[in-house]
């Protein structure tokens, strides 16, 4: 399988990538790890005329500790996140999340920026960035801005990114207690249901992916939480639950409650 013809440009800086994106608009696609984009191009679900490779931009693949936060460059691979001592010590829940993604080959190429921008409703990171209250840092032709995770995901494969914007980094506050659990799609390892739980003082923050067409904060669980796992009953309150060949509405709703319970008890 071979994608339709395109023009390949390797960007050497964020500003070059942004300018190219601005210039070519809808005909252009950013390429990072390529592990969502290339299969889609081969299947011709996606036929960009211009592919802007941001893979080699210096500085986008570093993980740094900044005071009470950890900043992760958009091009950091899942494997890099899994192996990072800084993440292990300060945002362990993200390490746990990365460990569940795909397989070693996918983790060696796929990136956090690519995963968030792609916004697959079954991707893992969205649950965790929501529960952690992470911030997505983006650059566009008018400079850079920060987007709260809770404002970032807007629908199936849809985010708050403007046409000329790319993700440059993700900022996570340090998280002492949190966990990620998922029910795997048996072949691809994507999440049928993925639940991130962050314990915050006497409260809890819960992010859920795979259940609705947009990942969400389970606010009804958070409100009902009083120290035990009974609040898990509210995992899908007010949510339009997806149905597909992996799980119908009833089964998926059940899984969501089971995995929230697991997270609250962990």
């Amino acid at each position: 399988m071979i994608p339709s013809k395109f023009n390949y440009i390797k960007a050497s800086s964020v500003s070059e990538a942004v300018n190219l994106l601005d210039e070519h608009g809808f005909d252009a696609k950013i390429l990072s790890g390529g592990h969502s984009l290339i299969p889609a191009m081969k299947l011709r679900l996606n036929r960009p005329e211009v592919v802007i490779d941001i893979g080699g931009i210096p500085g986008l693949d570093v993980i740094t500790e900044e005071g009470d936060a950890v900043v992760i460059g958009a091009n950091c691979t899942h494997q890099q996140i899994l192996n990072s001592q800084v993440i292990y010590k300060n945002v362990n829940i993200l390490k746990q999340t990365a460990a569940t993604i795909g397989d070693v080959q996918v983790r060696n190429k796929g990136t956090i920026g690519g995963s968030l921008a792609h916004a697959d409703p079954s991707a893992d990171y969205p649950a965790t960035v929501l529960a952690c209250d992470a911030t997505i840092i983006v650059a566009g032709k008018n400079g850079s801005r920060n987007i709260a995770a809770t404002d970032f995901f807007q629908g199936i494969f849809t985010t708050a990114l403007e046409d000329d914007e790319i993700i440059t980094a993700v900022r996570f506050p340090k998280i002492a207690h949190g966990n990620y659990h998922k029910f795997y799609q048996s072949a691809s390892r994507f999440a049928v249901v993925g639940v991130a739980v962050v314990f915050d003082g006497s409260g809890v923050k819960v992010g859920i992916t795979g259940v609705a067409d947009t990942p969400y904060r389970a606010t009804k669980v958070e409100e009902a939480y009083n120290g035990d796992s009974s609040a898990a009953e509210h995992a899908v309150d007010g949510v339009e639950v997806m149905s597909d060949h992996f799980a119908d509405v009833e089964y998926r709703s059940h899984l969501a409650k089971v995995f929230v319970k697991k997270g609250l008890e962990a």
Partner: peptide, 17 residues
């Protein structure tokens, strides 16, 4: 690729430059 296992069908030859 640079010591890491990767699926070469999902890498463009130009990315391997």
């Amino acid at each position: 690729m640079d010591g890491k296992a990767v699926k070469s069908c999902t890498i463009l030859a130009v990315q391997a430059d």
